[in-house]
Write a protein that binds this DNA or RNA. Structure first.
Lengths: 236, 236
DNA sequence: ACCTGAACACCGTTCAAGT
DNA sequence: ACCTGAACACCGTTCAAGT
């Protein structure tokens, strides 16, 4: 029984390179795509590249996936399971914040996942526990189930937005001859129309780097919980 | 000489199909790209397509823009000016909310802009008044300038996230044979591990459609303003 | 059922050469 | 300075045919 479980669990990989190309199975295709994404990012993934690395023709892939977007979504499944599930505080507001931050910090290490998530689907079953915890904690804080879902969505937007623009910032930092726009585009003449921005221009980069998602999420959660925030969180 | 001036000022367009192609200028290139983006979206934009519509070779474009990303960023300039600037309430918290919503509603009508903004730069000078107003309103509500910038960034993440996933939802709705993942992936067996999600699965689509950015932003702003929210906003 | 070969209609960008 | 032609090294996807 131990062996059976072991064999069923083990991913196939390209163990036998000798014989003629074998029939490919969907999991090999998805796993290969996931490896390319992890190592080189979304821009490096092409159907032809996956086919080549799997040892088949591009068209063979279309027997297992509908199209490239479908393949991208399939690569998400199982990624949440690669990060251990943390211990969570019992107090619901703290639990809500802890899960939100766990979500953020996990994804910050998986830049390709952020790009694929923009396609908009929750496809990794192993990630649903985070949604469950956030919604559950919201309810425990006094929100209605519907409001807890709305709160989850808003928190997700904050997390996702931070990740997207953090990645954009990193890309820009890596390409040194990239043009800068804001705040460099501001001239002295703009100080009349845009006084605060003109005053802050010199500190903009510093403020961008200082941006602390954890702190901001704390404030956002306070707002989302509203009056429920001050409801008695009975200390035992 | 009159002809020379006429030719120089007037945007070229394809008025004269007869003669050999004229020298192209950057603004024509950018305007053509912007038209393609407006009419057909980011996926339809290619350097070759722009070159063809401008009446030149792909390589001529590289004399005016660094690369495709650069062209994309240049297309943003001037788009904010296409939406009239609204009257804003005087009360700072309401002004903050009104500008944030104006930002959202403007971009909801410009889906290609949302895609390009993911590149991460504020390139349209005509859009900066919104940042100025949000930061200014934050300061008027009692935030420090630094906290007002952080608040602006968090609000922007909420706005951007909503737009991205709203667009993804629309895309999915337009492709009827696209696979659905959540909540369809939930089985009865998941009700143990994911009780709230299982209970809410049937209402998920309804809750997604009901999501009201204005309402959520109101809560987020409350949280961001924190105690300053109740500070006296001296009426004179 | 699953896979292949060839083809269609494209990409972004470099390079050396022209005017 | 500005533009061109040809080339390089790719794309996603369709179709008809093979086993």
């Amino acid at each position: 029984m131990a062996e059976e479980a072991e064999g069923a669990e083990e991913p196939v990989k390209k163990k036998r390179g000798v014989g003629r190309p074998r029939r490919v199975d969907t999991e090999t295709i998805v796993a290969t795509a996931r490896r390319i994404l992890t190592e080189e990012g979304v821009a490096a993934l092409s159907m032809r590249r996956v086919a080549k690395e799997v040892g088949t023709t591009p068209m063979a892939l279309y027997h297992h996936v509908r199209d490239k977007d479908d393949l991208l979504m399939l690569t998400l499944s199982g990624t949440a399971a690669t990060t251990p599930r943390p211990e969570l505080p019992a107090e619901p507001r703290e639990r809500l914040l802890a899960v939100s931050l766990h979500m953020h910090d996990t994804l910050a290490r998986l830049p390709w996942v952020v790009e694929v998530l923009g396609l908009g689907d929750l496809t990794d079953k192993g990630a649903l526990w985070m949604v469950e915890e956030i919604v559950g904690a919201g309810i425990d804080c006094g929100l209605t189930p519907a409001d807890a879902v709305r709160a989850y969505r808003t928190i997700w937007h904050c997390v996702y937005g931070d990740l997207v623009f953090r990645q954009a910032m990193r890309r820009r930092a890596e390409d040194p001859d990239r043009k800068r726009y804001f705040p460099d585009m501001l001239t002295e003449a703009d100080a009349d129309e845009l006084p605060h921005l003109a005053a802050l221009a010199g500190r903009w980069d510093e403020l961008t780097e200082d941006y602390d998602v954890a702190h901001q999420l704390g404030a956002v959660v306070d707002g989302l919980l509203g009056r429920a925030e001050r409801a008695p969180t009975s200390p035992g």
